[in-house]
């Protein structure tokens, strides 16, 4: 355990990097997911087609290959990315491709009647998506999004292989300098586990928050209170 305590600052730095990569990658993942997922559902082939190719390529190859490609192969085109940039880009695009299918699936499975009701009310496609179809699809998206985010968090450990000094990278450094292999790896396993668990809790909280009839329940509660106040 000595090594763990002695090198705690290094682990702390690693943890911060892991969190940074997770947050940045997660944000990119969400943007990519909605852009590609919605494009996939578009009526226009020029949007649907590239989105389809993007999704299949990024889901069909390994994240590690993508990350290495961005880091080692892109320089041959004169583009040298910072390791952190390459890492975040690979994570965001890869997990985004998976999440795009979540977005597509959730929206495509919306009842046809909802779209028809919107048309009957004169709502244009953009308004339909923004006000009705996407908000309704969010509850269905949340659990799989939660899984994607946990995946993304775990996959941040791969960034250590392109020299980003995350938690795994720090652990490897401490291992090679101190040789206290068991202690150090046990520590970071537990740390990753706690982070995954927190993400799961966050998803569960969001699910409850976005459940379809929760809003109505709160409004009703307010109403009841008002009525009681009025009666008093």
């Amino acid at each position: 355990m000595n090594a763990v305590i002695e090198y705690a600052p290094l682990l702390w730095q690693g943890l911060l990097t892991t969190l940074t990569v997770t947050v940045l990658g997660g944000a990119l993942c969400l943007v990519v997911a909605f852009a590609a997922g919605l494009a996939r559902l578009s009526r226009h082939r020029i949007l649907r087609w590239p989105a389809g190719v993007f999704i299949e390529v990024f889901r069909g190859t390994s994240l590690l290959v993508q990350m290495f490609w961005l880091f080692f192969a892109l320089p041959f085109f004169g583009i040298q990315l910072h390791p952190l940039t390459a890492a975040v880009l690979a994570l965001g695009l890869n997990e985004g491709a998976y999440a795009a299918e979540v977005v597509r699936g959730a929206i495509a499975s919306r009842a046809k009647g909802q779209t028809e009701a919107c048309i009957a009310l004169g709502m244009e496609p953009a308004l339909r998506l923004r006000r009705i179809i996407i908000p309704q699809s969010i509850p269905a998206m949340l659990p799989p999004f939660g899984n994607v985010m946990v995946d993304l968090l775990k996959n941040t450990s791969l960034v250590s292989l392109v020299t980003v000094a995350d938690l795994t990278f720090s652990a490897q450094m401490i291992r090679s300098t101190t040789g206290q292999t068991t202690a150090i790896f046990t520590t970071i396993l537990v740390m990753y586990f706690v982070l995954s668990y927190l993400l799961t809790l966050l998803t569960a909280w969001l699910e409850k928050r976005f459940a379809l009839d929760r809003k109505a329940l709160t409004l009703q509660r307010k109403e009841n209170i008002l009525m009681k106040v009025g009666a008093a």
């Binding site: 009647g113 909802q114 028809e116 009957a120 709502m123 006000r131 009705i132 309704q136 379809l212 809003k215």
Partner: peptide, 30 residues
């Protein structure tokens, strides 16, 4: 088609909105 309204067999209300929100949605945004 804005001159036409329709009531569906399966209602097709927006399930994530209250009755009030269902009704004011299109008047406000359309």
């Amino acid at each position: 088609r804005k001159k036409i309204g329709m009531v569906f067999q399966q209602f097709n209300l927006f399930p994530h909105m209250t009755a009030m929100e269902n009704i004011i949605e299109a008047p406000i945004h359309v």
